[in-house]
Write a protein that binds this DNA or RNA. Structure first.
Length: 589
DNA sequence: GCCGTTTTCGGCCCGACTGTTTTCAGTCG
């Protein structure tokens, strides 16, 4: 391949000047919503911009592509004629005239003030009009001089709260990886279960929806005397600060910085509260609209007709009262799941029990810590029918990647072990490096002898979108390649996903009979939920794998299953739900 | 600004807690 610089230069000349990402458009829409709200615009108009921003942020396809193809954006939920034109404007020009117009009216950055606790549109406007505040620095000054607390509607408590937030900014506001939050949640639930008169307990929120990271934990508990449950919860020793506390609700900050919300309700409302706290917000709003349409009211205590509670004890009752089957929490993002439920076409999401094997495993031959026999034993203990051993290739020297000779030795070793195993098949594989030019790091002569070949990128993550996509497609041109491992290379919170034209990659994989991996490592979860859904819509099968480097890592399968479920993936979409015979056929290109 | 088994106008989810109030607005989830 030509040097990357040359290729980039050619593409820059031929392609569009700038690529506008969906996230940029969503951020622009959010900013418009903030500023309109501060200006006192119609609340429903503000909501329309926010709803559109959510739709855009969760969209599995690139808006710039859709605009380029002349598609009708008004078919997207919450996008009408006006907002469709605004999107096209941003895609075409990289700017939004309306936002520039509003910014001329409201100097500085008033929108960012909305992020401060206790500051909403009304108080931000008051700050601007009475003190001439235009940004964070002005607020800090007003709080320090004491001018802030003298304003009507403000007070010493609020001033102190804002000052505290401004001086400790950046600390503890990072989202936490799901697996880390799990351990904390277990402790908190254990403590809650010892409360007097306790009934059921649960974790709701984005944790229950299995989002890859959580910003806080939402706990709920049922019991005869909610206030006593809240009181008991406050005795948890990890609590560093109490943000608020009432008779049914409390918000606290743990020592580690994680925010935890607790809601305590009577048993007859547990299901409704679980539903309400699980969200997402957009899903809940949509459900409440459904309820209203039937002359009902849905809140966190149940479904009501006038004063009569019709449902609320279980989530199933709540959904049933709205004419819907129970919807798995992973789907509750208002991304079509309510319509699917109503029409009886909810997916039967893949479960851990559907998984028959793990197709991405390392041993100490490369950078794993266990022996081949050790990993095989751990897999048998999980009841797997098969596993694939997939070491790194020679290029990854820090991981003791295998060259042709060492891989040949491992092939013999696996053959020998297979001969002694009755209830587990070990597939001979490799995680071969995809080099910068798209070639593979081992010769075809050895790849041909393997049952499964994963290709993976471990270098040159920074290529531009077209070069990176071309690189992966070129790797897939090698008929020995079966699967792209951790396709985007992201490390949550540490390294961004590579720039990849995902629709083109998915289409290319489908055409070539190549599959994509959903890597279950807690900091990878790659493909992510949106890309999973995109791949499913394209009819592409995926492998759910752990990339295990030690026996306990095989448990990472849970994370891969979570991502898959959020992406609407069913057992039939997954390679490693197939019996060994079928799997082998699918691995023949 | 969007949307429609309430359909082109008139609606748009709902409640808890706090702080600043003297009966409730604002914020948050």
């Amino acid at each position: 391949m030509a040097p990357a610089g040359t290729l980039r230069g050619q593409i820059a000349e031929a392609g569009p000047a700038v690529t506008v990402h969906n996230a940029d458009i969503a951020a622009t829409f959010e900013k418009v919503a903030d500023l309109l709200e501060i200006e006192g615009a119609n609340a429903f108009r503000v909501r329309a911009w926010r709803k559109a921003a959510q739709t855009i942020a969760a969209l599995p396809r690139k808006l710039s592509d859709m605009v380029g193809a002349g598609e009708d954006l008004r078919e997207l939920p919450g996008i009408g004629e006006d907002l469709a034109a605004r999107i096209a404007e941003i895609v075409d020009t990289g700017k939004l005239a309306l936002l520039e117009e509003i910014e001329r009216r409201t100097p500085g950055d008033l929108a960012e003030l909305m992020d401060l606790p206790g500051l909403g549109p009304k108080r931000v406007l008051a700050l601007h009009e009475t003190l001439g505040v235009t940004g964070i620095e002005d607020v800090l000054r007003a709080a320090r001089t004491g001018a802030l607390r003298k304003l009507p509607g403000f007070g010493p408590k609020l001033q102190e709260q804002i000052l505290h937030a401004l001086t400790t900014r950046g600390a503890g506001e990072k989202r936490m990886r799901l697996m880390v939050a799990s351990a904390i949640a277990d402790d908190l639930l254990g403590h809650l279960r010892t409360a007097p008169g306790i009934g059921e307990v649960a974790v709701a929120g984005s944790f229950r929806r299995r989002k890859e990271t959580v910003g806080d934990l939402d706990l709920l508990a049922s019991g005869s005397t909610p206030a006593r449950i809240v009181d008991h919860f406050m005795t948890q020793e990890d609590i560093a600060a109490v943000v608020e506390k009432g008779g049914t609700r409390a918000t606290v900050i743990l020592r580690g910085g994680l925010q935890v919300d607790l809601r305590a309700v009577p048993a007859e409302s547990f299901g409704a509260t679980l539903q309400y706290l699980t969200g997402s917000k957009a899903h809940n709003v949509a459900l409440r609209r459904l309820a209203r349409a039937d002359g009902l009211k849905l809140n966190e205590y149940g479904i009501f007709r006038n004063r009569d509670q019709l449902a609320g004890r279980t989530e199933e009752d709540v959904y049933a009262m709205l004419g819907l089957p129970w919807i798995p929490p992973e789907l509750r993002e208002n991304q079509g799941e309510i319509e699917a439920a109503r029409e009886g076409r909810l997916p039967r999401l893949v479960t851990r029990a559907d998984i028959r094997g793990d197709l991405h495993i390392h041993t100490r031959a490369s950078d794993g810590s266990a022996t081949l026999a050790g990993m095989a034993a751990a897999a048998r203990a999980l009841g797997y029918e098969y596993i694939a051993i997939t070491e790194h290739s020679q290029r990854v020297t820090v991981a003791h990647g295998l060259d042709e000779t060492r891989l040949a030795e491992q092939i013999d070793e696996i053959d020998a072990l297979n001969a002694t195993l009755k209830d587990l098949a070990i597939l001979k594989g490799v995680e071969v490096d995809i080099l910068e030019d798209g070639s593979l790091d081992l010769p075809d002569s050895i790849l041909r002898r393997l049952d499964i070949v994963l290709g993976a990128v471990h270098s040159a993550f920074g290529l531009d979108r077209d070069a990176q996509t071309d690189r992966l497609l070129r790797a897939m041109d090698n008929p020995n390649l079966n699967l792209i491992a951790h396709p985007t290379g992201r490390l949550i919170g540490r390294r961004d996903a590579m720039e990849i034209d995902m629709p083109r990659l998915i289409d290319g994989a489908a055409r070539r009979g190549v599959f994509l991996e959903i890597n279950g490592q807690p900091d990878r979860l790659d493909l992510d939920d949106r890309h999973c859904h995109m791949a499913k819509l394209a009819g592409l099968r995926m492998a759910l794998s752990t990339d295990a480097h030690r026996p306990s890592d095989l448990e990472f399968m849970a994370g891969a299953v979570d991502q898959a479920r959020r992406g609407w993936i069913e057992a039939g979409d997954v390679l490693n739900t197939k019996p060994l015979g079928q799997l082998r056929k699918l691995l023949k290109r």
